[in-house]
Design a protein around this nucleic acid. Structure first.
Lengths: 226, 226
DNA sequence: AGATGATGTTGACATCGTTCAGATAGGTGC
DNA sequence: GCACCTATCTGAACGATGTCAACATCATCT
C-alpha cells in the first residue's frame, strides 16, 4: 500500500537527481539488519502476523527481497530477531511492574498482570515470540540475562517464598507462574469471556480475577511443601 | 514423482490387469470431506504442522489441489475441521480422566494432567487447535457441547468447589484452570526444564509438580497422591 | 432417456521463500 | 590517483503455495 507505484509503473530509476533528501537509499543501507527488525515489528503491529512475510519486510525497509539474506540465514532467523526484541520489552515491562510493587507477594501479582497486559497489547508480537520459542523448544537465550523477565519472576518468587532453601520448589513455582500467565495471555481474548469481562469492569479486572484463582498469584497460600 | 524413477528402478508394476481393483480412484471420492480431515491429521502426525499445506492434504488424499474447495471455503476452514477433531479427542481424554478419579478434588488434578499429556503426545494437532482458536478468538463451538472438555472441567470444579452458589467464582476457577493447563502444555517441552524433569523422574511427574503449584490444582488440601 | 447439480480435474495467476550471477559502494594497499 | 577486495544490494529465476475459472464426470430426479 505504500509506494507500490514502482511496481505498477515502469519507473526508470531516477539516479540523475542528487538527493535533496540527505539519505533516501544510499544503496548500502546504513544498518539494514536493524531496519529489517523494525520493519518487521511495524508490519506486525499494522497488519498482523499473517502479513509478516520476508518480502513484505524487505518492501517495508525499501530493499529487494534478496537483501535480508545478507543479514539473516533465512526467514526464521529474521523472525527470531523480531521476537527477541519482544522478549526484551516484556522483560522491561515485568521489571517495571516488579519495581512498582511495595511488597514481594504483591510483586508476583503485578508481574502476572503486566505479563498478560503486554501480551494483550502486543498480540502479534507476542504470537511471534511464542511461535519462535515453541518451534525451537526453548525460551530465548536472552531470557536468562540480567534484566530478563524470567529472572525477575524467579527472584520475586524467592523473595515471597515460604521456603527459600528448597531450590526445586522455587523453580517449580517460577515455572508454574510463568506457564499460568502465558495461558491467560493467550486465552484472555476469547469471545466467550466477554460477558464476564464486562461484568468485572474491563479486561484488566478480568485478568486479575483469573490470576487470583491461580495458586502462586492472589489469595493462595504459600507454596505447599511436599 | 519423476518418470525418471521408473527408468532407474525396474518398475514392478504389472498393470495388465486393471479390473481386479475396482476402486482405485472412482473419480468421485466417497466422502472426500472426511478423507481430507483424516489426511490432514496424518500429515500433522508424520511431518508436523509446517508441512500441513492444502496441496499436501489433497495429495495425501489422492485428489487434485482444487478438489478441497468443493468442501471447504479455504485452507483455514479445512484446518479448523482438523482442529475440531482434535478438540473432540481432547474432550474424550478429559472425560476419561475425570471418570477415573475417585473424588471430585482429585478429578481436577487428573484432568489437568490428562490435558497436558494429550497436548504433549499430539503436539502438532494441539498446535493447530490453538492456532485456529486464537485466530478466531474463540474456543471451538463444540467445546460447549455435552462431552466437551470445558464442560467436564466446569462440572469438576463445581463438584469440588467450596461455594457452588457463586457462579462467577466457579467460572473464574474454570477459566483459570484451563488457562494454566494450556500454559503448561505449551511450555512443558522447553529444553530448559529437562534437568528438572529428569530429577523428578519423567515428564508426567514434572507436569504434576508444576500443576501442583497452580491454585486450583495445588491448594487442594490432600497432597497429591505421590 | 435427458437434464441438473454436486464433485473432481486441468491450467493459470499472484505471492512466497530462496538462490545465484552480477552491480555497487567503502575500504585497503600501492 | 590506481587496482583490488570484501560486504552489501539488485535482478531474474525456480519451485511451492493458495486460489480461481473453465471444463469433465458422475449420480440422481423426473
Amino acid at each position: 500500500m505504500r509506494e507500490t507505484a514502482s511496481a505498477l509503473a515502469p519507473s526508470p530509476r531516477r539516479r540523475e537527481i542528487p538527493p535533496p533528501e540527505p539519505a533516501p537509499r544510499p544503496y548500502h543501507h546504513g544498518d539494514l539488519s536493524r531496519a529489517l527488525v523494525l520493519a518487521g515489528r511495524r508490519i506486525l503491529e499494522t497488519q498482523g502476523p499473517e502479513a509478516l512475510s520476508l518480502r513484505a519486510v524487505a518492501r517495508e525497509a525499501g530493499v529487494s527481497p534478496a537483501a535480508p539474506y545478507h543479514h539473516f540465514k533465512d526467514k526464521g532467523e529474521l523472525l527470531d530477531a523480531v521476537a527477541q526484541e519482544g522478549w526484551k520489552e516484556l522483560g522491561h515491562a515485568i521489571g517495571k511492574a516488579r519495581a512498582a510493587s511495595p511488597n514481594a507477594r504483591g510483586a508476583i501479582n503485578e508481574i502476572g498482570v503486566a505479563y498478560v497486559c503486554f501480551a494483550r497489547q502486543n498480540p502479534a508480537v507476542y504470537r511471534i515470540m511464542y511461535r519462535s520459542a515453541c518451534d525451537r523448544g526453548t525460551m530465548p537465550d536472552k531470557a536468562k540475562e540480567a534484566d530478563s523477565g524470567w529472572r525477575h519472576v524467579a527472584e520475586a518468587i524467592v523473595a515471597a517464598g515460604a521456603d527459600p532453601n528448597d531450590a526445586r520448589e522455587m523453580e517449580l513455582a517460577t515455572i508454574a507462574s510463568w506457564c499460568a500467565a502465558h495461558g491467560v495471555a493467550e486465552m484472555a481474548g476469547f469471545k466467550e469471556f466477554e460477558p464476564l469481562k464486562k461484568a468485572l469492569g474491563g479486561e484488566e479486572a478480568f485478568v486479575r480475577a483469573v490470576l487470583g484463582h491461580i495458586g502462586i498469584y492472589g489469595h493462595a497460600k504459600p507454596p505447599a511443601k511436599a
